[in-house]
Nucleic acid binder design. Structure first.
Length: 699
DNA sequence: ATAGGGATATTTTTT
DNA sequence: ATATCCCTAT
């Protein structure tokens, strides 16, 4: 029986679903059923005779793609239907696999994740002797971020430094050298990082019209979810894929762009009609998720945004309460408050899975987690440190990677350092002995010749020998590495039982993989879901705003949403910060169903001491008072002032003029060394000054 | 040369 | 939680 679209959808959704050919831009406010519209559109296309295999659905997370495809299949009552769906990265991976030679990888490639690329950068920086003795050369994480930002925004490194890393501007030359060394190294090692997947896809499509033509024939309908989160590269891919037929529908909400840190630019959604001039614009403004008071607050929040497709959310849900804004003096009070409120909601009859606590960064929940544990409240945490980034998982994977790619110096480094009586010097000697093209045989030869003194190396050689010469399933390989690694794990970590359990989990999890290579590729693109739960049965959800997509609750807490933190004390005057803050709060608020609690302070950490104190947020205070219930504000600002004074007194002798007064002046200070600070003034100028004393001299 | 301890710095968010 | 640096003991 065909689907009754008219009955299932409102007029705006129906419009999007029934749209025939040509480009379309669907501007969909939060909770307006955009996912539903996309799912129904996929079903509609298939039902009206479009071959499923000619539909391509692009999303940002694999989970989103799977969910949507599953829903579409359910609608169509089919087991499978061959619609291609996935992330930009996974689709690029698939396409590039069959055309690797055309982009300079004649022997194929392996995907390296962020951690690997940081390790490569460190290796190259050491090798090129860039670090020298000068202080404050950027850490590898910063280097990776700078280079990746430059690639993703298609902006020169100089501009990225000026904009985001003024502290590292003196190293412009070194970073540029490093960036080009990195690019060369990856090609030689047959590596592609996440950014390469996108740039090489663009190169492939741009330089090879015949490949683009084939793909245009293959994918006659392109649908893109969360288009506000695409960066320049991804926008380019959409443009190239749609160039031949123009059947491109993108869906998004310019107010919900939350990935600026990885180069996402909501201007791409604003500019879509320029790339596809024929584009129809369809707006979904009817919210099905939240009550009107929540939407009033959400509307008030986005009201201040400077540019965008103006929309005003309205709802079909009656009643509901205004959101609460609780101002609390410190983090412990915040945790107690949330736990108390949760207990209250439970006694009102809500179930734990109907309640969520959202926050910006994984570590914002640490204190709350302690409180929840103390009270025996079971929770599941989404976001934060990812599974594959845990040290023991990386150790395990390093050994497996050597089997797939013996040239992987990073993995050699990691695996060798674990061996008893092997340190940096020995690692260097081994790697030197392995030469230009390292191989397992080369390593075995080295061990035979020189491994007499270190039985650990012999064991490693035995393990790798066994794994490479005999036939094993992926699970069996994991098991063998696990057995070899177990003693080291016990020596290295206090909490080894938990970690060992996680290795066993990987062992089970890999049962579904036919090949090692397949497993490693997938684990790079789709790391196992983190779930730090502490019980069984029903859970409270605690999650970063970013990881919370697609979930709905009846009560939501938003904690520590705002954050100022050393070393670059973020300025609430910075328009970008305010914009980001607005978006996060908007996203959080429109995901609430009934009750919404904001509770903050902003956490400001003092270097070294770890002491934190709270700062009232100007932005939250700007919320129209009638849009929230304000709780517990008394005493807060005074407490803050006292803490600031105490910190000053502790750090500077009496009579000292303190420069880093972030409160009234809006001046931003970044500490360079113990006695030097870099100050950014209102006009944007930067100066390096000696810290703290009355005679401020340029350093 | 390496191990081990302790202090220190940094850490968002995702592919 | 992890990496890094600096120290001392082996």
């Amino acid at each position: 029986m065909p689907i009754d679209y008219k009955k299932e959808l409102n007029p705006a959704q129906l419009d999007a679903v029934m749209h025939e050919r040509g480009p379309a831009l669907v501007i969909a406010g939060a909770g307006s059923g955009k996912t539903r519209a996309l799912v129904f559109r996929v079903a509609r296309l298939v039902e009206s005779g479009v071959p499923a295999s000619s539909i391509l659905l692009l999303t940002f997370t694999r989970r989103a793609a799977n969910e949507m495809l599953t829903r579409a299949k359910t609608l169509l009552k089919r087991e499978r239907f061959g619609v291609m769906g996935g992330t930009f990265h996974s689709v690029a991976n698939l396409v590039l696999k069959s055309h690797a030679g055309l982009v300079g990888y004649p022997h194929g490639f392996v995907i390296i994740d962020r951690t690997d690329s940081e390790a490569v950068l460190k290796l190259l920086a050491d090798e090129l002797d860039l670090i020298k003795k000068r202080r404050s050369f950027p850490k590898k994480a910063a280097l990776a971020d700078i280079i990746s930002r430059s690639v993703n925004t298609e902006k020169p490194i100089e501009e990225v430094l000026f904009r985001f890393y003024p502290l590292h501007e003196p190293f412009l030359g070194e970073i540029e050298t490093l960036a080009s060394a990195y690019a060369g190294y990856k090609v030689r090692q047959r590596f592609m990082d996440f950014d390469d997947l996108l740039t090489n896809m663009i190169r492939l499509l741009g330089e090879n019209p015949e490949v683009r033509g084939q793909l245009g024939q293959r994918f006659k309908h392109i649908l893109v979810d969360e288009y506000q989160d695409v960066n320049r590269l991804q926008a380019n891919i959409v443009k190239l894929l749609g160039a031949d037929h123009g059947n491109v529908m993108v869906v998004g909400d310019d107010s919900q762009s939350i990935y600026s840190f990885r180069g996402a630019d909501f201007r791409n959604i604003l500019e879509f009609p320029e790339i596809f001039p024929e584009a129809r614009v369809i707006k979904l403004e009817e919210n099905f998720r939240s009550t009107q008071p929540i939407l009033d607050a959400a509307n008030a929040i986005i009201h201040g945004a400077q540019r965008g497709y103006t929309k005003c959310l309205f709802t079909v849900r009656e009643g509901g309460e205004r959101p609460y804004l609780a101002v609390l003096p410190d983090e412990a009070a915040q945790s107690r408050f949330v736990a108390d409120q949760v207990a209250g909601l439970i006694s009102e009859g809500l179930k734990l899975p109907e309640i969520a606590v959202l926050f910006r960064a994984g570590f914002h929940s640490f204190d709350l987690e302690v409180e929840l544990n103390r009270r025996g409240v079971p929770y599941v945490k989404h976001g934060g440190v990812r599974f594959v980034e845990a040290a023991h998982i990386k150790d395990l994977l390093a050994h497996l990677r050597l089997l797939v790619n013996p040239g992987d110096l990073i993995s050699w480094h990691r695996a060798l350092l674990l061996v008893e009586r092997v340190g940096p010097k020995t690692v260097r000697r081994v790697l030197h002995a392995l030469g230009e093209s390292p191989s397992l045989e080369g390593f075995f030869g080295f061990v035979e010749k020189e491994g007499g003194k270190t039985p650990g190396l012999l064991n490693l050689a035995k393990l790798l020998g066994k794994l490479s010469t005999e036939k094993f399933t992926v699970s069996e390989m994991v098991g063998l590495v696990k057995r070899y690694y177990e003693p080291m794990l016990k020596a290295k970590f206090e909490n080894h039982p938990k970690r060992l359990g996680e290795l066993e989990y990987v062992e089970d999890w890999t049962a579904k993989y036919a090949g090692l290579r397949e497993f490693l590729d997938e684990v790079a693109l789709d790391p196992l879901e983190t779930s730090g739960n502490n019980g069984s049965g029903e859970f409270l959800t605690i999650s970063t705003v970013h990881s919370a997509k697609g979930l709905e609750w009846r009560a939501v807490f938003v904690i520590s949403l705002l954050e100022g933190r050393f070393p670059s004390i973020r300025s609430m005057d910075d328009p970008d910060d305010l914009e980001e803050e607005r978006r996060l709060l908007y996203v959080a608020s429109t995901r609430a169903k009934e009750k919404l609690f904001f509770s903050y302070p902003v956490w400001v950490f003092d270097r070294g001491s770890g002491r934190a104190f709270a700062e009232p947020s100007r932005f939250l205070m700007e919320l129209p008072p009638e849009s929230v219930h304000l709780l517990e504000q008394r005493g807060h600002e005074q407490m803050f002032a006292e803490k600031v004074q105490a910190r000053r007194d502790a750090r500077f002798p009496p009579g000292t003029r303190v420069v880093h007064d972030i409160l009234g002046t809006g001046v931003v200070v970044e500490v360079v060394t113990d006695d030097k600070v870099r100050v950014r003034f209102h006009d944007g100028s930067l100066r390096l000054l000696h810290l703290g004393y009355a005679n401020l001299e340029p350093a």
